[in-house]
């Protein structure tokens, strides 16, 4: 059964949030969705780049207040 996990990387700077996401992606199972919370503007554009390059799926990207919510599904 796939899970949805939230990773709170608020108040850390590039490439901290991306590396946090990648750490959890390694441990996740295929089909799991990870939601990364970040206040770093660069991360909001870097995460989709990374997802595209390595071939996972960008589920959504939304800014709520000052916080980016980036959802990524592990596909392989």
């Amino acid at each position: 059964m796939s899970e949805c996990k939230t990773i709170d990387a608020r108040d850390t700077f590039c490439p901290g949030p991306l590396m946090e996401l990648i750490t959890y992606m390694k441990q996740a199972s295929v089909g799991d969705t990870l939601e990364l919370l970040s206040t770093d503007q660069g991360t909001a554009s870097d995460v989709p780049e990374w997802v595209n390059k390595v071939g996972h799926e960008m589920v959504s990207s939304e800014k709520i207040g000052e916080v980016w919510h980036l959802k990524v599904r592990k596909t392989k």
Partner: peptide, 11 residues
């Protein structure tokens, strides 16, 4: 370190 970590984690 930023270059190394991002490049390595991107494959």
């Amino acid at each position: 370190a930023m270059f190394a970590s991002v490049a390595a984690a991107t494959g």
